[in-house]
Amino acid sequence: MTEILVLYYSHGGSVRDMAKLIARGVSSVAGAQARLRTVPRISANHEATEPDIPGSGDPYVELADLKECAALALGSPTRFGNMAAPLKYFLDGTSSLWLDGALIGKPAAVFTSTGSLHGGQESTLLSMMLPLLHHGMLLLGLPYSEPALLNTSTGGTPYGASHLAGTMDDKAISTDEKALCIALGKRLAETALKLKQSS
């Protein structure tokens, strides 16, 4: 099986829910399966504030997960138009993979959730792309051939999947947002398999 790593940080649960939808899209492709991983919260002085092993939910990511995966979907809530600190902190510790070229040529995609419609969805997606470009990954977005991208009135961008959670009410993921998450996972898995077959 070709493993696709779906790595995320989620504070309120929306990004976690998106990760599960992306994993569903990955699993819809024959020969592909998703490996869901998360990162722990950190304090202001960059120390983990959670136990080494989560009490529930997905396991914490290890560098080996990145090395072993055939592709990566990376997700984070927006923090002032940027990825959240816990995810950035983890990515800052991937220099050994960069030195080894472990991620070069692997496809990647990004996803996010924001509190407001113009709360930095696209800039957050772009901020997550930057370290992936430095790692030599091949970035995938969502083409406008996806009908939901033209119909959505909440989240959804050509840069990657996104969700409008709202500032107080934590809105459910809309039908269009769900379709785009699943489409992104499917596209990522299909691309990883094509690259694997051509090598």
Rank of each mutant, 00 (worst) to 15 (best):
E190R: 05
A32D: 14
A108L: 09
P147G: 08
P77R: 12
G141A: 05
L126Q: 05
F80M: 06
M1Q: 07
L140G: 13
A44R: 12
L193A: 02
S153V: 07
L138I: 13
T124I: 09
I53V: 11
V110N: 02
S123P: 04
L195R: 04
L63F: 12
L21M: 15
E50H: 00
F80Y: 10
A102P: 08
L66W: 15
K194T: 06
C69E: 03
G156V: 04
A32M: 15
A19I: 14
L184I: 09
G81V: 08
D100W: 13
G185T: 12
E190M: 08
I173H: 11
G136Y: 15
G75V: 01
A189F: 09
F90S: 00
E50N: 00
H118N: 06
A189I: 05
T157F: 13
S27W: 13
S153W: 09
P158Y: 13
A148C: 01
L103W: 11
A73R: 04
N82Y: 14
L99I: 12
D170A: 13
S27N: 12
T157N: 02
Y60G: 04
M18N: 08
G75D: 00
L164E: 11
Y89E: 00
L130R: 02
L139C: 11
W98D: 00
P51S: 04
G12A: 08
A34V: 01
S174F: 05
R24I: 10
G166K: 00
K106C: 06
M83D: 14
K171P: 08
K178H: 09
P77C: 09
A192F: 15
P143I: 03
F90P: 00
G101K: 09
L142G: 07
S96W: 10
T2R: 02
T38D: 01
L126M: 10
M18H: 11
A172P: 08
T2K: 01
V26F: 11
D169K: 10
S96K: 14
A19D: 06
T152Y: 07
G81C: 09
A84S: 07
I22M: 01
P51T: 02
A84N: 06
H163V: 02
S28Q: 03
L36F: 08
A84G: 06
